[in-house]
Computed example of a mutant assay.
Amino acid sequence: MEENRSYTTEEVSKLLRVSKLTVYDLINKGELPAYQVGRQKRIDAVDLEQYISRSKNIKSHKPLNRENRQDHKLEPSLQDAVIISGQDVTLDILANYLQKEGFKSLRDYNGSLNSLISMYNGKCTIVSTHLFDGDTNEYNLPFIKKILTGRSYIVIRLVSRWAGFYVKSGNPKNIKTWEDLSRPDIKIVNREKGAGARVLLDEQIRIRNMSPKAIQGYHNEESNHLSVATAVAQGLADVGVGIEKEAKIVNVDFIPLIQEHYDLVILKSDEQESLIQTMHKILNSTEFKNKISCIEGYDTTRTGSVIFETL
């Protein structure tokens, strides 16, 4: 390893052959030093090397690689932790409230679709999702019902928010509709596969019988809303899909197109009952709603409402 370089949590997970959740757990325990760059944690190569050396010298150290366990459950060190999967800042606030209530909370920064798949495989506790279904014009439930088939779960509203286009200040290319994305003079920046914004774009072009091949930049991907907005601000693309909040951070214009519902999914079981009750308490508290309302672009009118629940 090069001592002057650093790694993302994803790169470390691949090097150690463990899940990203294990890496986050090691960071939270103080066993693996890390620092924040924007919304991303990084680990210096020298610190990773030292961690590996320490691990080799501990005779009782158990093998790190448990990825091939047949039951697909959380690793033992994470069994007592609440794993919250998703990328929005409201989830960081929720994690802090759960910590105060006595729940060990860890964050996993997966997109909505990948988060649901992880939940199906038993690898996370709370999933946030904003997945638009073009056939029903509905958010989340069509995907949740299909992916979590055979599971018992509850869906609770976190927030509603506007999704739309990031465009350069003044919108010089007059981009207003989904159809505009196929114009020859327009280049987009996309989100990664599995992200809610990527699903929204894919569904909108599908129901309009548009081809991704006709959209310049369709395969240029960024991993979060802020990176998409920044790419537009820097002139690397003319337009990207995201939420309102990030537009103000990097000074691009925002064109609202659809109000999306950002919901939380929790699997139901006797062991999860205390967590579910605590979630109801937090999400319906005036203090929590006021804190979220301070973030521009979020609607808390139905925060804490049960959207769907299996028997």
Rank of each mutant, 00 (worst) to 15 (best):
L91M: 14
Q79K: 14
I83D: 02
D92H: 14
G111A: 10
C124A: 12
N121E: 05
V82L: 07
L91D: 00
N96K: 15
S112Y: 05
R69F: 08
G86E: 01
G111L: 04
Y109L: 13
K104Q: 14
L98W: 08
S115G: 15
M119A: 11
I83G: 04
S118I: 00
L78M: 13
N114Q: 06
S118E: 04
Q99F: 08
E67D: 12
K100D: 13
L64Q: 05
S85F: 09
L116S: 02
L78T: 03
R66C: 12
L91V: 08
Y97Q: 12
Y120F: 14
N121V: 02
N110P: 00
Q87T: 15
N110R: 11
E67K: 15
K123T: 04
C124R: 02
K104P: 10
S118P: 01
Y120K: 02
P76Q: 03
T90N: 05
G102P: 10
N110F: 11
D92K: 15
L74R: 10
Y109E: 13
L94N: 02
Q79W: 04
R107A: 07
D88P: 05
D92I: 10
Y120W: 04
L74W: 01
D88T: 10
L74M: 14
V82N: 08
G102S: 12
V89W: 12
L74H: 06
G111Q: 05
I83M: 13
R107D: 06
L94T: 04
G102K: 07
K123P: 07
L91N: 05
Y109K: 13
S85Y: 08
Q70A: 10
Q70N: 13
L116G: 08
N121G: 03
S85L: 11
D108P: 00
L116I: 07
L116E: 03
P76S: 09
P76F: 06
E75P: 10
L116A: 08
H72D: 01
G102L: 05
S118G: 09
Q79T: 10
L113F: 12
S112T: 03
C124I: 07
E67L: 15
V82K: 02
E75A: 09
H72A: 02
